[in-house]
């Protein structure tokens, strides 16, 4: 399964995590996550994912974008990630990921987003 395929399972992964939904209850935002070359557009409302659109969307506006390479997401989502690949900021520090746009909603809900973006790790643990 490609990293993008794993990320595409995000709606089921999030809906199965009631605690993460609870922690995101103050958050409503549209943002973008690029898994390698493939963009995903996330619509989050009160902590729940109301839409996850995979692939390019012309002129879609989002508050911020998180991009990382296929390798970065693959290693980040290992069942036990290696040092330097285990955290979003470990990825940005090594230049394997970037944060762009209005970062305020990201920083206001940083643990929520870190945990959201780590959810595909569950498929590695179950494998």
């Amino acid at each position: 399964m490609s990293p993008a395929d794993r990320f595409a399972a995000l709606p089921e992964l999030l809906s199965g995590d009631s605690d993460l939904c609870r922690r995101g209850r103050w958050l409503s935002v549209d943002c973008r996550v690029d898994v390698g070359a493939e963009p995903f557009f996330l619509s989050i409302h009160d902590g729940a994912l109301t839409a996850l659109d995979r692939g390019p969307r012309l002129m879609r506006s989002t508050a911020f974008t998180i991009r990382a390479t296929d390798e970065a997401w693959t290693r980040h989502w290992a069942a036990m990630p290696e040092p330097g690949w285990h955290d979003l900021f470990a990825l940005t520090k090594r230049g394997a990921a970037s944060l762009e746009g209005d970062l305020r909603p990201l920083l206001q809900n940083l643990q929520y987003f870190k945990d959201l973006l780590a959810l595909p790790r569950q498929s590695a643990k179950g494998a």
């Binding site: 990630p81 285990h86 955290d87 305020r104 920083l107 206001q108 940083l110 643990q111 870190k114």
Partner: peptide
């Protein structure tokens, strides 16, 4: 931005999994 929560969220990645 809530100072306590953002501080904790930032450093959370420095803890070993």
């Amino acid at each position: 931005v809530h100072g306590g929560e953002v501080c904790a969220a930032l450093i959370s990645g420095l803890i070993a999994p």
